[in-house]
């Protein structure tokens, strides 16, 4: 049975094409591109909310996109226990919809960060099954607002429910700090309680091809398919 997936495009999305290629190349299944004004979503195994600057980041990153017509369908898809992945701006949109806890605020140094970062998995879920404990992944980040923040009660909930999927760490030869953007507890990605919705700041769709600097981004799709 082939793996079906879809990518939502909002005005200002700029990683939608990358996400489509990522899915096509790795799932070998049907991949749909859905415009934000559509009101129905095909039945697929995975939906990606891609990175970019949906609606120009006006108001707040992800805030306008979270009110798009397609979002009702995206929520239904998630409530149906199917996979939903928000990458970068997609993560921001998921927190604005309320499918994920917390918020993404400006990076600690108040500057955009476009570089390789290193992450490892924290708690096991279906998105990181194929990743070994303590395995360090090299995946690019490119964001201005990627500093994950939540209050202490929420943080405890995230921990107790094992909702933290990825955390930033130091690479073997890297010159970067352990917690690259100042996120609370170096959180790079979290899931919902049911663990079928993942939001992450790093871009796995930029780290999968042979010519990319790293192929570690494959592991997420491999985890979902396995």
């Amino acid at each position: 049975m082939s793996f079906k997936s879809a990518v939502i495009t909002f005005p200002g999305s700029n990683c939608d094409r990358d996400a489509l290629c990522y899915l096509k190349d790795l799932t070998k299944g049907e991949v749909h591109n859905i415009w934000h004004e559509e009101t129905s979503l095909p039945k697929v195994d995975l939906v990606i909310l891609p990175g970019g600057f949906s609606f120009g980041d006006y108001l707040r990153s992800g805030a306008m996109a979270s009110k798009s017509k397609i979002i009702d369908e995206v929520v239904k898809h998630a409530n149906d226990n199917r996979y939903l992945l928000g990458i970068c701006n997609g993560f921001q949109i998921l927190t604005e919809i309320g499918l994920l806890e917390g918020a993404l605020i400006r990076n600690k140094k108040l500057k955009f960060l476009g570089k390789n970062c290193f992450i490892k998995k924290k708690f096991k879920n279906n998105f990181n099954l194929s990743i070994k404990d303590n395995q360090i992944l090299q995946i690019p980040i490119a964001h201005n607002e990627g500093n994950f923040y939540c209050d202490i009660e929420t943080l405890n909930l995230l921990k107790n429910n094992e909702q933290i999927a990825f955390e930033y760490c130091k690479g073997e030869f890297s010159n970067t700090e352990e917690n690259i953007n100042g996120s609370i507890e170096a959180i790079a990605g979290i899931t919902n309680k049911k663990k079928n919705v993942l939001g992450m700041m790093p871009h796995p769709e930029r780290a999968y091809s042979d010519f990319h600097q790293s192929q570690d981004g494959r592991l997420i799709i491999e985890s979902l398919i396995s």
Binding site: N14, D18, C21, F112, G114, R206
Partner: peptide, 19 residues
């Protein structure tokens, strides 16, 4: 000059080979 380059997205579009 990473301080400069790191403020630019160099990998969007997924086709970048060198940074």
């Amino acid at each position: 000059k990473s301080w400069v380059f790191d403020q630019y997205d160099s990998t969007v579009m997924g086709d970048t080979i060198r940074e």
